[in-house]
Design a protein around this nucleic acid. Structure first.
Length: 653
DNA sequence: GCTGGCGAGT
């Protein structure tokens, strides 16, 4: 049978079901060509469906294709306008979404049909942060029957919530003709987003009925407000949970730095037979990355492969790259990246650049960035944060300054506080305190505590008491509870032999109740985690072994010229003799334990919560050559790969 | 004559 002898309706139905199954632009092109050949382009329903499935497909270039088809239609109907409005709002430029809406009302004016587009138009306003225009649309809605459409009025509440205009949202909520579950849930989201925990709880108590979404919203919102205990309470009282409930609770733990709890909860979820989906996997990967437990990370990676979850789905690749980097396995991160890097996802590139950065691989990070440029992938703010951090850790000062200019001139990205922070850190680390201070003076935003701490920590390293003092006082003023600023100030004084000033700092801390965070190092052996706290006896059983091993190491290394760096013992001098206090640094204990409990030549991975100290750094360098071990230490800021007596940071950290 | 509004992740 030839095409022309088939009834139009059959052909149309067949084409529509093919359109529904389209997975690539190529298929859309083929069907469109076929429609032109069979004259189906003049069949309203079929051409509408082509535009609909294409605009809502989320494929690259699908919207511009849909719009080119649209432009050849003489009298487009509501449905076509609607799909283009929604498509551009969700997957394209929200501004186009508003244009389609404006076009629509200029040529058609049935209110009940316009209603369908309004949710997307209002969503476009929130995406564009267009409060004024949003209010204008709201004004128009109020004058019509649209106000009585729950989809429309709920979208108004949602828009004000997204814009953070909580008073407006509440005003609409109170005034709307009918409130359903969605209205209540949105309003609660709104309060939680602005940190109004009390008001959110109150609404949650007051609402006439609740669904799973209401509970999940509370878990997520409490978590994001830093109220893990409240999130837990809701989570535990739920009779029915879905994967969103679990994921919300897991990420509440991750955000609040309870990564072990997050990992345990993920395990509990699995044991109850709840199948993790992409967001659940991504959130547990963040926990694993934080803990540095590569074995768990590999298990999740296997799970992803064996369950045929594509590396391209959601943030899977970027989460894996991040996890492997933060566990010290930059090669594995690179493998994942290579498998997806032909893709266009900015997050994958950003994770790779940041990963290389924490390993001090500045040049490699720059190469990834240049590859990105060659592929015409537009870098965003986060790309540059990663890049600057890579330059900073790699000591690439000229490159850092050059790309700081490029970011603004070529990519039109205005530097934010964090970008300035990176630039300041870059200059300060490289020993250029004066220029770093100049940046602080001239930047259009007030420097934050991190910027001053960057100056401070560089001053410690350079022994610059004057600038260090100034930076420390400013940092302490900005965050009086951050112990590290006091400690660094005290370190500067100690290094300069100003013991009276050291005492003053210590007194200040005591009076303000600021406690030094104890150094803590982790080592994982045979999937078991061993934790060492500074100056503390460890778990019964191997304490004395570790101490005698450290003593053995010290005497062996002294033969190689190791001199304990006593300037590193600062605040707690009266407690124990300085030399032995140095030997109680947590990373030395973890290292000794690792040497005892792993076979000769096996690499040792250690994770420390604070920055590694100079003495331990020199110590571990020597151990790596004398004992012929590859030792990888993750400290608060970055990785140190020790091998053959030197460190990948080239003593620059 | 097909359609629309809430919850989780890098």
């Amino acid at each position: 049978m030839t095409a022309s002898s088939v009834p139009v309706s059959t052909l149309a139905n067949e084409t529509i079901s093919k359109l529904k199954r389209c997975k690539s632009m190529k298929e859309f092109h083929q069907i469109h060509a076929h429609m032109i050949k069979t004259n189906l382009v003049n069949h309203t329903l079929t051409i509408s469906k082509l535009i609909a499935f294409c605009s809502l497909s989320a494929l690259p270039n699908s919207l511009s294709y849909a719009s080119s088809v649209f432009r050849r239609i003489e009298n487009p109907n509501y449905f076509i306008f609607y799909t283009l409005t929604k498509g551009s709002c969700d997957y394209g430029d929200p501004l186009d979404s508003i244009s389609y809406y404006v076009d629509m009302v200029s040529c058609l004016n049935e209110l009940d049909k316009i209603a369908f587009s309004f949710p997307s138009v209002l969503k476009a306003c929130s995406k564009l942060r267009a409060f004024k225009e949003g209010k204008q649309f709201f004004g128009q809605i109020l004058k019509t029957q649209l106000w009585f459409d729950p989809f429309v009025s709920n979208s108004v509440v949602r828009m004000f919530v997204e814009l953070g205009e909580i008073e407006f949202a509440r005003g609409v909520f109170d005034k709307m003709p009918e409130r359903d579950l969605i209205s209540w849930n949105s309003m609660i989201t709104g309060y939680l987003r602005v940190g109004e925990v009390e008001l959110a709880s109150q609404l949650f108590e007051e609402m006439p009925e609740r669904d799973l979404v209401s509970f999940n919203t509370m878990i997520d919102g409490y978590g994001k407000c830093g109220r893990c205990e409240l999130a837990e309470e809701i989570f535990r009282m739920m009779n029915e949970k879905d994967v969103v409930s679990w994921t919300s609770m897991i990420s509440a733990y991750v955000i609040n730095h309870h990564s072990s709890k997050a990992l345990n909860l993920f395990r509990e979820m699995l044991s109850l037979g709840v199948k993790p989906d992409v967001p659940a996997i991504v959130s547990v990967l963040a926990a694993i990355a934080d803990l540095g437990f590569v074995e768990e990370g590999k298990w999740v990676h296997d799970y992803i492969s064996s369950n045929k979850i594509s590396l391209n789905s959601g943030f899977i690749a970027s989460a894996l790259i991040d996890m492997y980097s933060k566990c010290g396995y930059i090669e594995n991160a690179y493998d994942v990246f290579r498998r997806v890097s032909h893709g266009q996802k900015i997050g994958d590139w950003n994770s790779m650049i940041s990963g290389l950065a924490i390993h001090g691989l500045g040049q490699e990070a720059l190469e990834v960035f240049l590859e990105m440029e060659r592929m015409n992938i537009k870098p965003d703010e986060i790309t540059f944060l990663g890049l600057f951090s890579a330059f900073s850790h790699g000591g690439l000062v000229d490159e850092g300054q050059f790309y700081f200019e490029i970011m603004q001139e070529k990519y039109n990205i205005a530097p934010k506080l964090q970008h300035y922070g990176c630039l300041i850190d870059l200059l300060a680390r490289a020993g250029n305190l004066v220029d770093a201070l100049k940046v602080i003076q001239h930047m259009p935003i007030e420097a934050d505590v991190l910027a001053w701490k960057a100056i401070l920590s560089a001053s410690v390293k350079l022994g610059n008491v004057m600038i260090g003092e100034k930076a420390a006082l400013r940092a302490i003023e900005l965050n009086p509870n951050d112990s590290s600023s006091y400690v660094m100030l005290s370190n500067i004084y100690a290094k300069a032999g100003k013991w009276d000033d050291v005492a003053k700092v210590r007194l200040m801390m005591k009076q303000r109740g600021v406690r030094k965070i104890p150094g803590c190092s982790l080592i994982v052996i045979d999937r078991k985690v061993h934790q060492f706290l500074v100056a503390k006896e460890m778990d019964a059983g191997y304490g004395s072994n570790v101490h005698s091993k450290i003593e053995e190491l010290v005497s062996r290394l002294k033969l190689e010229g190791y001199e304990p760096d006593l300037s590193q013992v600062l605040l707690d001098v009266e407690q124990v003799g300085k030399g032995s206090l140095l030997n109680l640094h947590s990373e030395k204990m973890a290292l000794a334990f690792g040497l005892i409990n792993t076979s000769n030549g096996a690499p040792i991975h250690i994770i420390k919560n604070l920055r590694i100290c100079c003495d331990c750094h020199a110590f571990i360098k020597l151990v790596s050559s004398v004992y012929n071990r590859k030792i990888v230490v993750r400290d608060q800021n970055r990785f140190h790969h020790f091998q053959n007596g030197s460190c990948s940071c080239r003593d620059y950290w």
